[in-house]
Design a protein around this nucleic acid. Structure first.
Lengths: 256, 256
DNA sequence: CGCGATTTGTGCACGTCTTCACAAGCGCCT
DNA sequence: AGGCGCTTGTGAAGACGTGCACAAATCGCG
């Protein structure tokens, strides 16, 4: 594959960091590997095999090796991967070498929790501002940050280099907030509101919806219930089970 | 890990409830359609075309039609889909006809927010119990529910028909909580703790991790930054953009 | 009653993702 | 030095998901 440098690529010899053009599925798993690697580093491991790391990350070992191979060859045959080196490489690819500023809009129920979430700092992010449209919430201090009015977004963007916005407003307000975020130059949005956002080209949106996750689980519950109800046509008893999905963040039956 | 069903699957003639054996990708989108349909119903629409509905759900119309075709033929050519009927069918498939009881374990920062989230009731779920391991939190009342000690899980399960558990504890406690949930018969878990859970076969786990979502966005930011830095080999300026992904819950550049 | 406008349902081709299986490479021990 | 065991990296095959493009079906209207 495009191991070294693209044949068709213009001059720009080994300039920057080689942009490996990873498959989306791989990108989605890298953070998981990263977390597992940090755990290993904290417990004193210096190297790790693909078998161990894949177990810690909850994936197939072949998948892990293929994923990592897209970053380059950072393993040593017969030995495994150097934990510290791999952490560095993954953080580099994910762009976590700089601590990115995040604007959080909507300081309601969920917004409060997110503002207090300490997983930000530990994972390469920093809440640059808390914003809300409700004047009665403006001025409130949460976790050392003062809530500002959402109309001050432009000011915030001028102070900081804002690239990521988190929307934790009610669905009715989400589109307008998204528009405001885009207007001040935000190009990545994490949307917790249960609605679809329209954004211009070049802006990425990821969605997290609690109800959707529960409904997906509900489907599987429903199916499991139906299956155990009927006596399994084949032969062997109820050892026959739902059967696999390869869905993104669904894990089933890991371990014994 | 008992992945797939055999290609030459034996009889298993569709008995009563017609278990359509949907593709995972389809299942993951059904809740989105359902939400869009409820919106349409609330605004007085009686029928909807695949084009309209797909736009409201943020997907391709062909994809929507294919997804719905897996449920059966509930549309009318030349007219569209009956909104009420489609809602009924999707809710049926997802097993939302019964209001499922959910146990929420971990009433910290995030747990509080989840306990107060009103999206549960509106989407077919009911928080049956709030649980925490911290004795100082036991007895606290949140949103009309009293926090009980996690060791009372068995009692709760005896009172209610518990099938779904939500873990909102720190990562260090998550595995133990998962074990306890499984022990009382829970077969679906929604895990907010940043760690991989080991569960026996037949138990479904879905994971929601804020940091992972942000890191995926960070990757795209990183990539976009690298792209705009170089002068676009072809000709036209920076209109050249990342280009589409088909990842699960990533939307890019919908609408104008 | 027939015709055109409209919209569903789907066959097909294509791209992406996963998994197996194995050669190539590395370190260690004799 | 040589051989052996272990582990990575990857080619190939198959499963899965997507989107086009079109035939089949339905409604409304003259």
């Amino acid at each position: 594959m495009s191991q070294h440098r693209h044949p068709g690529a213009p001059g720009r010899a080994g300039a920057v960091p080689a942009l490996p053009d990873l498959p989306e599925a791989t990108v989605a798993r890298l953070p998981e590997y990263l977390r597992a690697l940090h755990n290993l580093a904290d417990t004193g491991h210096e190297t790790v095999s693909s078998e161990e790391l894949s177990a810690a990350a909850g994936v197939n070992s072949a998948k892990l090796r293929k994923d990592l191979s897209h970053l380059g060859s950072y393993g040593t045959r017969g030995v495994g991967y150097d934990v510290a080196l791999l952490i560095e490489q993954i953080e580099n690819v994910l762009g976590l070498t700089q601590r990115r500023a995040v604007a959080l809009v909507g300081v309601g129920n969920l917004g409060h929790a997110l503002a207090g979430y300490d997983g930000f700092a530990g994972r390469g992010f920093r809440i640059a501002a808390l914003l809300d449209a409700d004047p009665s919430r403006v001025g409130e201090e949460i976790n050392g940050l003062v809530v500002r009015h959402v109309d001050e977004l432009a000011t915030v963007a001028a102070e900081e280099s804002l690239a990521i916005g988190v929307i934790a407003t009610p669905a009715a307000a989400a589109q307008q907030v998204a528009d405001q975020l885009v207007a001040v130059g935000v190009t990545s949005i994490l949307n917790f509101a249960p609605c679809v956002l329209s954004v211009p080209e070049g802006v990425d949106v990821r969605k997290v919806d609690l109800a959707i996750e529960l409904q997906i689980l509900s489907f599987h519950e429903h199916r499991k219930a139906s299956l155990t109800a009927l006596p399994a046509t084949g032969g062997s008893a109820l050892t026959a089970l739902p059967g696999g999905f390869a869905a993104t963040d669904t894990q089933e039956a890991i371990g014994t």
